[in-house]
Design a protein around this nucleic acid. Sequence first.
DNA 1: TGATTGACCAACT
DNA 2: CAGTTGGCCAATC
Length: 111
Amino acid sequence: MKNDSFFRKVYEVTKKIPYGRITTYGAIAKYLGTARSARMVGWALNNSHTLSDYIPAHRVVNRNGILTGKHHFGGSNVMKELLENEGIKVENDKIIDFNKLFWEPGNMEYL
DNA sequence: TGATTGACCAACT
DNA sequence: CAGTTGGCCAATC
């Protein structure tokens, strides 16, 4: 695990997102030390589907709580369905209780 | 190998 | 207040 590449961390953090919780690209990037690299988070998630590990990318939204990457889930409402399936309320491709459901990367309080 | 892009964010004009 | 630009790292053309 000495390979501290950006993508590697993004994958690890994303996989640690608790059930029923969400986080943002900027939060992950900031956790990694470079808040300006939020774009790379999206890139990593884009390649996440190629990984063997399951990446709950549907729990990652932009800082406005909007499902920006919904289009990359193979459908238009796939991401929304996944979130609602976890009890997350989504309306007009936006997280309703985004403020409450927001999970800070690295926070293991759910354990 | 250089230039471009990409599921973003924040500052500046 | 809305549009533009800069920035970050990695992958693709």
